[in-house]
Write a protein that binds this DNA or RNA. Sequence first.
DNA 1: GGTACGATAGAACAGCGTTCGATGATGTGC
DNA 2: GCACATCATCGAACGCTGTTCTATCGTACC
Lengths: 231, 231
Amino acid sequence: MARLQSREGRRRVSHSMESVLTEAVALLDEAGAPALTFRALAQRLGGGVASIYWYVASKDELLDRAADHVIGGVLADIEKLPVGDDPIDDLRTMALTLFDAIVDRPWLGAYFMRNTDVQGNSLLLYEKLGRQTLRLDLDARQRFHAVSAIVGVVVGSAVDMGQEPPQEVLDGAVDREEYLGRFAQRWRELDPEEFPFVHEIVDEFDGHDDVDQFRSALELTLTGLRLQAGG
Amino acid sequence: MARLQSREGRRRVSHSMESVLTEAVALLDEAGAPALTFRALAQRLGGGVASIYWYVASKDELLDRAADHVIGGVLADIEKLPVGDDPIDDLRTMALTLFDAIVDRPWLGAYFMRNTDVQGNSLLLYEKLGRQTLRLDLDARQRFHAVSAIVGVVVGSAVDMGQEPPQEVLDGAVDREEYLGRFAQRWRELDPEEFPFVHEIVDEFDGHDDVDQFRSALELTLTGLRLQAGG
DNA sequence: GGTACGATAGAACAGCGTTCGATGATGTGC
DNA sequence: GCACATCATCGAACGCTGTTCTATCGTACC
């Protein structure tokens, strides 16, 4: 795709929507949201800054499309999943797949399903989730709310967990374990009379597993949903 | 508090942590996250930009503290609530109070409970929520997960709903109703064969009430929790 | 009254998203 | 083979941002 030619002057590089999004996501994955700048992206693509504006109208649109690009991968994974007997089991599997993608990409939460005009994959994923609720004994409103609830749990948990850690963790100077441990330590020093709950759960918090935490939250919602659908 | 004096030169203005946070939150509430800049804040306080740095070390810390400032109000509201017989009913009320505060402040979701060192109110709120779970028949891990789940639902729903609308809505040129209606219309034009679920719920989506949506999501989680606690 | 310190502020800096105008490359009609 | 419109690219500039530097003011204390 890259045809470059020059009489003697500087190179011209030709991109494509695909390559722009791929490199944008790569930047985000490698160094987090602040690393995605038009200048950094242009350098990676070997071109000029303004060229990117031929593909997207703004940084917001770039992130919308980058998000949808990632969701495309998630969607492909989800479509590979076997269809089970129990729609709620299928919902759980799909939610977990989505969670895995978001938890490593805190920026994704804020842009998921933000503008379905340019986010065809997100809409398809939404449809895929919703289709499971069609197999349950619910009315339209309950179905709408059910999918919203599941997406809410996924996004909420992922945002809560995946927020950009301070620089020291990103650098690798301090690992996540130790970072959490510091907070735990601070919590342990609180007055037990004033903070009985914090003391109750501090050991659980210290060194806890994000996926476990998410699974539990999801399970509560799915249990509620199952009950609503009549067992 | 504001003592100003000058022989003939320019005024000097004295602030306070309180006034800095109050004005910061006011800016955020009036015009959204992008409106909070150090220059805008300084002008509002009638002082210079660099003065703000005497109170906070960075914009991140400013937002951490602003978030906690708002949560302080939420906490006060929650402490006014009567203690009921059913801890789950109390959890619902508290979650709704928290939701109300976050839904109008999308930025809050991202900064809530981010750094408990400077967010004493958030920690107190977390404790308040958690204390309800102490009245339930659960183990420590379940309690930890329960509170995480509730916070996740609140933040997830609020972030999903409250994301900064495009400029036209913020200006008031287009109201929220119409903005949602546009998406609904686009959805109605999709192929019903390919998007059966979207068609099923599009009327629910169109003109839906955010609070209803959140209540439903919360109810699913609370139902699951009640079941987990043994009815 | 000098002096230390709490608090304020203007100016400058690097980096950001975005816009502008110019220019290279490409495909079409003749 | 050549003009021409269009697609795509790019460097430079603009206004804005968070942040830092350095200088200064005002107050309380000995």
